[in-house]
Structures are given as structure tokens and as C-alpha cells.
Amino acid sequence: MKILVPVKRVLDANIAVRVKSDGTGVDLANQKMSMNPFDEIAVEEAIKLKEAGIASEIVAVSIGPAQAQDTLRSALAMGADSAVLVKTDAVVEPLAVAKILKAVVAQQSPDLVIMGKQAIDDDSNQTAQMLSALLGWPQATFASKVVIADGKATVTREVDGGLETLELDLPAVVSTDLRLNTPRYASLPNVMKAKKKPLEEIDAASLGVSLDATLKVVSTVKPADRKPGSMVGSVAELVEKLKTEARVI
């Protein structure tokens, strides 16, 4: 079984976000960029399926600028077999990403696509669902457990109010939630080996997908700060303030 894992290069989760004062966006210049954490979970799950003898091949794919090669090398160092970079310097919206991934699926013919449920930059939470709809493949989003057997995927999903389990015919699209697994760190020998693994580059324009933005971002601003609060010295003072000042109890 072949697994395709889309990965996105995003601002590292531990870096404080700086909103540009002119309202044009978030300052990414010279900042540490990393693989979207949900995509790391997707890579890890694919590797686990390979280690269990269920998957035979893992292809990582990223859509972005030349530097997204680093993100793909991270996936290769974790254990993906090969990588595809769909190169573009444009900001690509989730719908266009899904269309590009559909084209990559047509080239790669995977049996399963595993990807993060959302990217921690735009927090859209759309691409897996869109890809599933465009491919006509079944979807299981927000996965906390994936079992593959007999041409089917049994996926437990984190939903409001508990957990839901679905059975999907393969091929299928799965999006990962936080508790699916804990991604491994790539060892130094594997980082070195990853440099020799195949990484193919495709020009995004060659796939016939329009990359033009359809949503216009009018402005990006820092949210209003909360008014500074105060420290209280005791439980009695807290209860008093909640009753008489805040009036919430």
C-alpha cells in the first residue's frame, strides 16, 4: 500500500507571532519555519503503518517555495521514502492546494492520503475535506486512531461530545488530530540519509490549477489586548471581587 502525506511549511509553533504594523500580514522574514505539527503526526502515522508491514511506500508532498524542500527533507529524515515539491511562490488557498493534491494523487496513485487536520498558520481546517470531495474518496477527519485491514480503514475521530468510529473503503483521505501519535525525532544518521533520498520538483503552473486567490485579505491586525487584571491576595478577596466587582457569581 502506498501512502501520500502532504506537509506544509509554517512558522514554527514555538515562535511568537509578530503582526506587521501596516496590516499586511504576519512577519515571516528570517523566522524559524518548520513542518506543520499536525502534518508531523501524519508522517509519523504513515511510518508506523510501514513499520507494521501495512504500507510499502510513503511519498511526502509539499506545495510552496524552494525552502519547502527543508520541510520535505524533515519528512524524509523521519522515514518517508521520497518527496515531491510542487513549486510556487504564491500564497495558495486551501481549495487550490486540494486541486494540486488531486493532480499529485493522479500521478502517484496512493491508496491512502494522510494529512494534518489544519495548518497552524491560517487555521483553515479545509484541505483534507476538499481533497476528499474532489477525488470522490471517503474521508475521516480529526483521527485519533487508524486501523487498516482488508482494504478498509477503521478510523476513530475526535468529535464534539466524544469519539466516533467510521469504516472507509480505500482509497481514502484521513486527517490527523493531536492524539493520534507522538511524532519521532529524526536521528542524525537519518537526517544524513534523507539528503540522498529522491526529491522531485514540479512547477505548480504545469498542473493546470489556477493559483489566483479568491478570498481577498483586506487586513491582518493584532487583536485588542485584554485590560490588565489584578492579583488578589486570598480566596476571600477573589470571591468578594467576583461578587461585587465582576458580578459573575
Binding site: 504576519v26 486551501p94 487555521d123 491582518t220 493584532k222
Partner: peptide, 28 residues
């Protein structure tokens, strides 16, 4: 395209939505 998780309606087709875990608010 979908406009995800809007927190305010600015106009019939214009909305605010948080990005970067709420560290920034986009108007789209």
C-alpha cells in the same frame, strides 16, 4: 473557497477570522 471560523460579520461578504491561534485577526 470556504471562509473558516468567522468571529465577526463586517459586510454581506466580508468577515473577520482569527489566524495563528488568534495571534492575528484577518478581515477577508
Amino acid at each position: 473557497m470556504q471562509v473558516s471560523d468567522i468571529t465577526a460579520v463586517v459586510g454581506p461578504k466580508t468577515f473577520e477570522r482569527p489566524v495563528y491561534a488568534g495571534a492575528a485577526i484577518q478581515t477577508v
